[in-house]
Amino acid sequence: MHSQQQLMDSQSVLVIEAGRTERHYWKDLWRYRELFYFLAWRDILVRYKQTAIGIAWALIRPLLTTVVFVFVFGKLAKLPSDGMPYPILVFAALLPWQFFSNAFAEAGNSLISNANMISKVYFPRLVVPVSAVIVGLVDFLISGVLLVGLMLWYGVVPDWRIVTLPLFLAVAVVASMGAGLWIAALNVQYRDFRYIIPFVVQFGLYVSPVGFSSAIVPEQWRLLYSLNPMVGVIDGFRWAILGGENQLYWPGIWLSLVLALLSAITGILYFRKMEKSFADVI
């Protein structure tokens, strides 16, 4: 047991001033690293405790959506599938899309649903929306099992490109984090933004190439179409999983990547700027 005086000497002095939080922020974020895991763990645990079929929900949702999309786009609209089984074509796109929409929606609402914690305890607020994205990743991994099942069923064997999959997933993570941080911070100040979330999720499903291949978009519009960062991610997923003759539209991929990074960087900056007043406003 050391003496109290020694203890005091070894302690650093914390200074609190208007606009000062900046300095210890990233150190604090590291100190609270376990909170990322525990908040994600709580959300997953609670979700599956309240449901009767539990984890199966992560499988049923993408499965049913795939069935509908295969029927509407493949059978009724007869959109081309580049010789691939239509279910796999759809599912390979649905997987990243559902990850994005879940992660974005959960992150966007995360501050409001944890309002009590924010007004009563100090921790870097960035932890909250980021953990929501982690929850989305876990769901993604669970539904990923379904994709493996479908590939086995249709006898689709991926080639070397499958190893690039994590890169495209990373772009989706960055994009959802960027959009989620923006909406989360805005949502605290202006509750209108909670109505934007379901709109983006619903609208995005149809403007992203989930039910069809982006190859049907005319060449001159491809770059414009790629302004939606999920276009690049979805194309990348199909390219990595389906293999074959599939060609990547590189300018679109780069554009997606840049836009995703841009949204994440500005998202973090805006979030950090607004964060100080969260507890006063929420």
Binding site: M8, Q11, S12, V13, L14, V15, I16, E17, A18, G19, R20, T21, I118, S119, K120, V121, Y122, K276, S277, A279, D280
Partner: peptide, 18 residues
């Protein structure tokens, strides 16, 4: 709330050891 860093002061300074 200010001492526990939940909210920021408008002005002034606090030094906390420990």
């Amino acid at each position: 709330k200010i001492l526990s860093r939940i909210t920021e002061p408008t002005s002034g300074q606090i030094k906390i050891r420990g």
